[in-house]
Amino acid sequence: MAISIDNFSSPPSSKSHATQIFLRILAIGTTLSAACLMFTNKQATVVYGIPVDARYTYSPAFKFFAFANIVAFALSLLSLILVFLMGRKAASSTHYFCLFLHDLIITTLLMAALAASWAIAYVGKFGNSHTGWIQICDHFGKFCNRGIASTLLGFLGVIIYLILTIVSANQSRQIRA
Protein backbone atom coordinates (compact mmCIF):
# COMPACT_ATOMS: atom_id res chain seq x y z
CA MET A 1 0.00 0.00 0.00
CA ALA A 2 1.53 3.27 -1.14
CA ILE A 3 1.05 6.43 0.87
CA SER A 4 1.09 9.76 -0.93
CA ILE A 5 3.38 12.25 0.73
CA ASP A 6 1.37 15.21 -0.58
CA ASN A 7 -1.63 14.34 1.61
CA PHE A 8 0.20 15.06 4.82
CA SER A 9 1.22 18.44 6.07
CA SER A 10 2.99 19.67 9.10
CA PRO A 11 2.91 23.21 10.30
CA PRO A 12 6.31 24.80 10.40
CA SER A 13 7.80 25.23 13.83
CA SER A 14 7.59 28.80 15.06
CA LYS A 15 11.38 28.91 15.46
CA SER A 16 11.95 27.76 11.89
CA HIS A 17 9.30 30.15 10.57
CA ALA A 18 10.86 33.07 12.47
CA THR A 19 14.28 32.08 11.12
CA GLN A 20 12.92 32.09 7.56
CA ILE A 21 11.43 35.55 8.02
CA PHE A 22 14.54 36.99 9.68
CA LEU A 23 16.91 35.59 7.04
CA ARG A 24 14.71 36.78 4.18
CA ILE A 25 14.64 40.30 5.63
CA LEU A 26 18.45 40.17 5.88
CA ALA A 27 18.64 38.92 2.30
CA ILE A 28 16.44 41.80 1.15
CA GLY A 29 18.71 44.29 2.91
CA THR A 30 22.00 42.88 1.66
CA THR A 31 20.97 42.39 -1.96
CA LEU A 32 19.39 45.84 -2.20
CA SER A 33 22.41 47.48 -0.55
CA ALA A 34 24.86 45.64 -2.81
CA ALA A 35 22.91 46.66 -5.90
CA CYS A 36 22.56 50.31 -4.82
CA LEU A 37 26.27 50.58 -4.06
CA MET A 38 27.16 49.14 -7.45
CA PHE A 39 24.59 51.21 -9.38
CA THR A 40 25.96 54.43 -7.89
CA ASN A 41 29.61 53.43 -8.25
CA LYS A 42 31.51 55.96 -10.38
CA GLN A 43 34.52 58.19 -10.05
CA ALA A 44 36.24 60.73 -12.29
CA THR A 45 39.89 61.58 -11.93
CA VAL A 46 42.88 62.84 -13.89
CA VAL A 47 45.51 60.23 -14.77
CA TYR A 48 48.74 61.52 -16.33
CA GLY A 49 46.98 64.77 -17.27
CA ILE A 50 44.06 63.00 -18.98
CA PRO A 51 40.57 63.12 -17.43
CA VAL A 52 39.31 59.55 -16.98
CA ASP A 53 36.22 58.18 -15.33
CA ALA A 54 35.36 54.75 -13.99
CA ARG A 55 31.78 53.49 -13.90
CA TYR A 56 30.23 50.15 -13.09
CA THR A 57 28.62 50.15 -16.56
CA TYR A 58 32.04 49.81 -18.19
CA SER A 59 32.27 46.22 -16.94
CA PRO A 60 29.74 43.55 -17.96
CA ALA A 61 30.65 41.64 -14.80
CA PHE A 62 29.72 44.59 -12.58
CA LYS A 63 26.47 45.10 -14.50
CA PHE A 64 25.65 41.40 -14.11
CA PHE A 65 26.39 41.66 -10.38
CA ALA A 66 24.17 44.72 -9.93
CA PHE A 67 21.24 43.30 -11.89
CA ALA A 68 21.54 39.86 -10.26
CA ASN A 69 21.26 41.54 -6.88
CA ILE A 70 18.18 43.47 -8.01
CA VAL A 71 16.58 40.21 -9.21
CA ALA A 72 17.50 38.55 -5.90
CA PHE A 73 16.04 41.51 -4.01
CA ALA A 74 12.74 41.35 -5.89
CA LEU A 75 12.45 37.58 -5.52
CA SER A 76 13.42 37.81 -1.84
CA LEU A 77 10.59 40.26 -1.30
CA LEU A 78 8.19 37.92 -3.06
CA SER A 79 9.40 34.92 -1.08
CA LEU A 80 9.01 36.86 2.18
CA ILE A 81 5.35 37.43 1.35
CA LEU A 82 4.96 33.74 0.52
CA VAL A 83 6.58 32.68 3.80
CA PHE A 84 4.17 34.95 5.68
CA LEU A 85 1.25 33.33 3.86
CA MET A 86 2.61 29.82 4.41
CA GLY A 87 2.94 30.52 8.14
CA ARG A 88 -0.74 31.40 8.47
CA LYS A 89 -1.97 28.09 7.16
CA ALA A 90 -0.64 24.56 7.17
CA ALA A 91 1.60 24.33 4.14
CA SER A 92 2.50 21.03 2.56
CA SER A 93 6.03 19.83 2.06
CA THR A 94 5.53 20.56 -1.65
CA HIS A 95 5.26 24.28 -0.86
CA TYR A 96 8.48 24.13 1.09
CA PHE A 97 10.16 22.16 -1.69
CA CYS A 98 9.24 24.93 -4.15
CA LEU A 99 10.68 27.44 -1.70
CA PHE A 100 13.84 25.30 -1.51
CA LEU A 101 14.17 25.36 -5.33
CA HIS A 102 13.65 29.13 -5.30
CA ASP A 103 16.38 29.59 -2.70
CA LEU A 104 18.73 27.27 -4.55
CA ILE A 105 18.30 29.16 -7.83
CA ILE A 106 18.84 32.55 -6.15
CA THR A 107 21.92 31.20 -4.35
CA THR A 108 23.36 30.01 -7.65
CA LEU A 109 22.59 33.32 -9.38
CA LEU A 110 24.22 35.31 -6.59
CA MET A 111 27.27 33.03 -6.55
CA ALA A 112 27.76 33.45 -10.29
CA ALA A 113 27.41 37.23 -10.07
CA LEU A 114 29.74 37.38 -7.09
CA ALA A 115 32.39 35.30 -8.86
CA ALA A 116 32.27 37.52 -11.94
CA SER A 117 32.43 40.71 -9.88
CA TRP A 118 35.20 39.41 -7.66
CA ALA A 119 37.34 38.43 -10.67
CA ILE A 120 37.12 41.91 -12.18
CA ALA A 121 37.67 43.55 -8.79
CA TYR A 122 40.81 41.46 -8.33
CA VAL A 123 42.18 42.55 -11.70
CA GLY A 124 41.33 46.18 -10.87
CA LYS A 125 43.13 45.93 -7.54
CA PHE A 126 46.23 43.98 -8.58
CA GLY A 127 46.28 44.07 -12.40
CA ASN A 128 47.68 41.24 -14.50
CA SER A 129 51.26 41.67 -15.67
CA HIS A 130 51.05 38.70 -18.06
CA THR A 131 48.34 40.34 -20.16
CA GLY A 132 49.41 43.95 -19.66
CA TRP A 133 46.39 44.95 -17.56
CA ILE A 134 47.38 47.61 -15.08
CA GLN A 135 45.89 48.08 -11.64
CA ILE A 136 43.46 50.97 -11.42
CA CYS A 137 42.66 51.10 -7.72
CA ASP A 138 45.63 53.35 -6.99
CA HIS A 139 43.97 55.97 -9.26
CA PHE A 140 40.30 55.20 -8.47
CA GLY A 141 40.25 54.59 -4.72
CA LYS A 142 36.63 55.61 -4.13
CA PHE A 143 35.44 53.46 -7.04
CA CYS A 144 37.36 50.42 -5.81
CA ASN A 145 36.29 50.84 -2.18
CA ARG A 146 32.61 51.06 -3.13
CA GLY A 147 33.05 48.04 -5.40
CA ILE A 148 34.66 46.07 -2.58
CA ALA A 149 31.88 47.08 -0.16
CA SER A 150 29.24 46.04 -2.69
CA THR A 151 31.00 42.74 -3.31
CA LEU A 152 31.28 42.03 0.43
CA LEU A 153 27.57 42.69 0.82
CA GLY A 154 27.00 40.33 -2.10
CA PHE A 155 29.11 37.71 -0.34
CA LEU A 156 26.97 38.14 2.77
CA GLY A 157 23.87 37.72 0.59
CA VAL A 158 25.24 34.43 -0.77
CA ILE A 159 25.86 33.16 2.77
CA ILE A 160 22.35 34.16 3.86
CA TYR A 161 20.82 32.43 0.86
CA LEU A 162 22.94 29.34 1.45
CA ILE A 163 21.54 29.15 4.99
CA LEU A 164 18.02 29.76 3.62
CA THR A 165 18.52 26.91 1.15
CA ILE A 166 19.46 24.56 3.99
CA VAL A 167 16.51 25.68 6.13
CA SER A 168 14.09 25.31 3.21
CA ALA A 169 15.45 21.86 2.36
CA ASN A 170 15.03 20.80 5.96
CA GLN A 171 11.45 22.06 6.08
CA SER A 172 10.56 20.39 2.79
CA ARG A 173 11.50 16.97 4.11
CA GLN A 174 9.69 17.30 7.44
CA ILE A 175 6.30 15.64 7.04
CA ARG A 176 3.99 14.04 9.51
CA ALA A 177 3.26 10.37 8.96
Results as ranks from 00 to 15, higher is better:
residue 45 T to I: 04
residue 103 D to L: 03
residue 168 S to A: 15
residue 110 L to I: 04
residue 74 A to I: 15
residue 29 G to M: 15
residue 140 F to Y: 06
residue 28 I to A: 08
residue 52 V to P: 01
residue 8 F to C: 05
residue 84 F to G: 06
residue 92 S to Q: 09
residue 69 N to E: 06
residue 112 A to M: 07
residue 97 F to W: 09
residue 39 F to S: 05
residue 59 S to F: 08
residue 64 F to S: 07
residue 24 R to I: 11
residue 98 C to N: 07
residue 177 A to T: 10
residue 126 F to E: 14
residue 62 F to P: 00
residue 78 L to D: 05
residue 162 L to T: 14
residue 30 T to C: 11
residue 104 L to M: 12
residue 66 A to P: 02
residue 43 Q to T: 03
residue 47 V to I: 15
residue 67 F to W: 12
residue 125 K to G: 04
residue 15 K to D: 12
residue 115 A to L: 13
residue 151 T to M: 12
residue 140 F to H: 01
residue 125 K to W: 05
residue 101 L to H: 02
residue 117 S to N: 11
residue 67 F to V: 12
residue 140 F to W: 02
residue 137 C to F: 10
residue 86 M to K: 06
residue 156 L to Q: 04
residue 126 F to W: 12
residue 79 S to N: 13
residue 112 A to R: 01
residue 143 F to L: 06
residue 120 I to V: 15
residue 171 Q to A: 15
residue 117 S to P: 01
residue 21 I to N: 08
residue 163 I to W: 03
residue 122 Y to L: 15
residue 48 Y to G: 00
residue 20 Q to Y: 14
residue 136 I to T: 10
residue 61 A to W: 00
residue 9 S to M: 03
residue 41 N to L: 07
residue 95 H to C: 08
residue 67 F to R: 05
residue 74 A to H: 07
residue 144 C to W: 06
residue 168 S to C: 07
residue 58 Y to F: 14
residue 135 Q to F: 08
residue 15 K to L: 14
residue 77 L to N: 07
residue 166 I to H: 00
residue 97 F to Q: 04
residue 2 A to R: 12
residue 73 F to W: 13
residue 88 R to E: 10
residue 54 A to N: 04
residue 154 G to M: 02
residue 10 S to W: 07
residue 87 G to A: 10
residue 51 P to V: 07
residue 173 R to F: 10
residue 157 G to D: 03
residue 140 F to E: 03
residue 165 T to G: 04
residue 81 I to A: 14
residue 157 G to M: 02
residue 166 I to G: 06
residue 41 N to A: 08
residue 138 D to C: 03
residue 106 I to T: 11
residue 151 T to Q: 06
residue 121 A to F: 15
residue 52 V to H: 11
residue 39 F to G: 01
residue 70 I to D: 02
residue 134 I to P: 02
residue 143 F to T: 06
residue 43 Q to S: 03
residue 31 T to I: 11
residue 131 T to L: 15
residue 59 S to K: 01
residue 27 A to R: 00
residue 44 A to K: 14
residue 57 T to M: 09
residue 63 K to S: 11
residue 156 L to Y: 06
residue 105 I to W: 08
residue 83 V to F: 04
residue 148 I to E: 08
residue 168 S to G: 02
residue 103 D to Q: 14
residue 127 G to I: 03
residue 157 G to P: 01
residue 134 I to E: 12
residue 121 A to S: 14
residue 145 N to M: 13
residue 49 G to N: 08
residue 134 I to W: 08
residue 33 S to T: 13
residue 61 A to I: 02
residue 148 I to C: 01
residue 173 R to N: 09
residue 119 A to C: 07
residue 162 L to Q: 03
